[in-house]
Simulated assay, not measured.
Amino acid sequence: MAVIGARCSRLMLPLLGGPRYFHCSSRNSSPRVAVVLSGCGVYDGTEIHEASAILVHLSREGAEVKMFAPDIPQMHVIDHSKGQPSQDSRNVLVESARLARGDIAALSKLSARDHDAVIFPGGFGAAKNLSSFAVDGESCSVHSEVERVLQDFRNAKKPIGLCCIAPVLAAKVIPGVEVTVGQEEEQGGKWPYCGTSKAIQAMGGKHVTKEVNEAHVDQAHKVVTTPAFMGQAPLHVIFDGIGSMVSNVIRLTSK
């Protein structure tokens, strides 16, 4: 047991009713990172590849990870085999638990005091469940718990990471924040969601153009963003861009 280390032994604490960790590390001071999910599935929840990439990169950074999601109904449910709405009704927290392998808590329990950083994967759940951006565009509202979390981490001067469509959350909540969702022109279909950059500017944010494998760091607000699936690119390139975002988030924690 001594070889494993004291931090890894925390994984046994659920047997005694103690806290659970998704990952263990041999570091003396591992960064504690919260990941906020919005369901399970690109069209109505969290983009699964993005969430997985974030968790892999956080594991490589030796981070302790805890996942959260709002305990609310989804806006709607999409049959991913057809790309069409179904009549099902699902809960965001329950669906997010699929990605978290059951180790998840309600977003209301997330506090900046307990974590060094927070990261939001993309997927349309960020625009449908965490906000109303998919329906209302620049006039959207952000879920009250999501807004609270973003403001808490901002006020605590702790880093916030977002990818894909999720940067719109920061643009709506943090005045003057710099984010990227990729390029501002479609470029022959390579950037099908480029119009999002204009909505970000209309909400008072500053948009910075980046490629899929890049991340933008707003040093003043400690907000790190990367385009991910906003652009058409091979999966490994998207994975690399998310890795750049995660690495910069960890760097900003100074751990």
Rank of each mutant, 00 (worst) to 15 (best):
K82Y: 09
V146P: 01
V56K: 12
L162N: 08
A106P: 11
S132Y: 06
G125A: 04
G5V: 05
Y193M: 11
E185Q: 15
K255M: 12
C164F: 05
C24E: 10
A134M: 08
D218C: 07
P70H: 04
L16W: 11
D240V: 07
T196V: 15
T209V: 14
D71M: 08
T253R: 07
P73I: 01
D136W: 03
E211W: 10
V35E: 06
K158D: 07
V149Q: 04
N213Q: 15
F229T: 02
T180G: 04
R7Y: 13
V35L: 11
L55C: 14
F68H: 00
T209K: 14
D240C: 03
G161R: 00
V146I: 13
G122M: 07
V181D: 03
T209P: 07
N28A: 15
S132W: 02
I242S: 08
E214F: 09
L37Q: 06
G204W: 06
A100N: 02
H216D: 12
G204L: 02
A233Q: 08
E64P: 00
S131R: 08
I119S: 04
V42F: 15
S108L: 01
H221F: 10
E61R: 11
K66L: 13
A156V: 03
Y43R: 11
C164E: 06
L37F: 07
H57E: 13
I238D: 11
H143V: 02
V36D: 01
A2C: 09
P31M: 04
N213R: 13
R90H: 10
K198S: 14
S244G: 12
G182E: 11
L169N: 10
G122P: 04
A53N: 11
P70A: 03
E185M: 11
F229K: 08
D114Q: 02
I54R: 01
E47P: 01
D218F: 06
K172Y: 00
K222V: 02
P31C: 06
A228N: 02
V36R: 05
T253I: 00
L55Y: 08
S111W: 02
G102A: 08
V65Y: 09
H57I: 08
A127K: 06
N91A: 10
V3K: 14
G195S: 03
A69T: 03
G39V: 02
T180L: 03
G39I: 00
V149A: 10
T180Q: 04
G205R: 05
P19K: 08
R20Y: 11
L169W: 08
C40M: 09
A220V: 13
V33R: 00
S30W: 10
S89N: 09
D114A: 04
E95I: 00
R7S: 15
P175C: 00
K210M: 07
G123Y: 08
A105D: 12
R7H: 15
L150Y: 07
I250V: 15
Q183L: 15
T226E: 13
S139W: 08
N248Y: 09
